[in-house]
Design a protein around this nucleic acid. Structure first.
Lengths: 201, 201
DNA sequence: TCGCGTCCATGACATCTGTCATGGGGAACT
DNA sequence: AGTTCCCCATGACAGATGTCATGGACGCGA
């Protein structure tokens, strides 16, 4: 019997997934959590075999939870399900030791299968997401460029970005200019959106 | 027995919700659809009593489907469930004749209850979403301002917005300036994000 | 040690944007 | 008929932004 921890902020989805997983004879949902912190706390108590975690949650995101679980509970395998899978997430997730990565568009059968695969030490990444991640390629941005571009994402003016990054406005403009060139965008906002779509920031 | 049509692009969620609803004795999921178009086509064939539709789907969004259903199948009550409820959606949905509006954070119990409420001609709107919609208030933007701001959302430069809106660049700047003033933002990108958060565009 | 790339910064310049004043046309309401 | 608001447009100006050249500091690998 595989003991599962389920974390998703959407009560309806979480309950429904629990119901589906429980239909399988060899699977048992032993705990549920609505936030990342709750998932972590619960996991420390119940020691699940597999943690199925939603990528976007109110507090910590799925990858952070996975990272914490990897060090806290090395025996617990982690997999992530998500609605909006961007290439960068997958990369970060795998780096965090996640063993399975699925969009919510898969069927319940697949979910159950992947839970079993992950439990026996295997890995599974949704082919479509994997293809996307590969086609997105590696980020051409330097770390600083990525930092600055991330701050530019919300539409803040350069002065504010400079303050938040503790840089001079001129330097910020240089990085942004460089990033705009690399992304082929026509201004920093477009560049920021592009980079986020590619999962670079 | 209430006959339900379920539309959601996420297979996992759809299947899980179907499983949950089917646990109720008086509810029966008679059809499922993964896209808006599919939902419409299916509804015309099976004539469900209640349509439970996800707000965001690849092609038509939930509100458009609801609108089409209202004219096509007047006897079919429509309700919408959503992950990310922005105030504007709720307003548009109610205008389209939707009888129920729920976030996916509710429990399965609530979902089933609302299905029954809607079926008997009642209405139900999630209290939290309703409060948000009220606090967001009506849009202070004129129709043109909203149009232009929407085009500005993707970070396009003014010239492109002008082309796409068939306006002169000067006019576009005036509308954007006005919108920036009304939203209290410091530039059009921030204004666009703000307006979208409020559901105004 | 040298070269290389990254990080940080400055200054100068052209262009883009935000703001304001102004005005004509049209629809709605008094 | 007059008032008011929205739509569309133009022009002018200040300030923000994008681009480019330049240079020093630092760490890393050859």
């Amino acid at each position: 019997m595989i003991r599962i921890l389920l974390a998703d902020d959407e009560h309806l989805i979480r309950g429904a997934m629990a119901a589906l997983l429980s239909l399988e004879d060899d699977l048992q949902v032993v705990a549920q959590a609505a936030t990342g912190a709750e998932a972590l706390a619960t996991a420390r108590v119940v020691h699940p075999d597999v943690a199925v975690i939603d990528l976007q949650m109110p507090d910590l995101d799925g990858v952070s939870v996975a990272q914490a679980l990897a060090t806290d509970l090395p025996t617990c395998r982690t997999m992530i399900v998500t609605s909006h899978g961007r290439p960068g997430h997958l990369k970060r997730a795998l780096a965090a030791g996640v063993r399975g990565f699925l969009p919510k568009t898969v069927s319940a059968d697949v979910l159950a299968t992947v839970v079993r695969t992950v439990h026996t030490g295997g890995r599974y990444v949704d082919p479509a997401l994997a293809a996307e991640a590969i086609s997105a390629g590696d980020s051409p941005l330097t770390p600083r460029e990525a930092d600055v571009l991330e701050l530019a994402l919300e539409g803040a003016p350069i002065d504010e970005i400079a303050r938040r990054a503790s840089l001079s406005p001129g330097t910020v403009r240089n990085y942004l200019s460089s990033a705009v060139g690399k992304t082929g965008a026509s201004n920093r906002h477009e560049a920021a959106r592009f980079a986020r779509a590619k999962g670079w920031i």
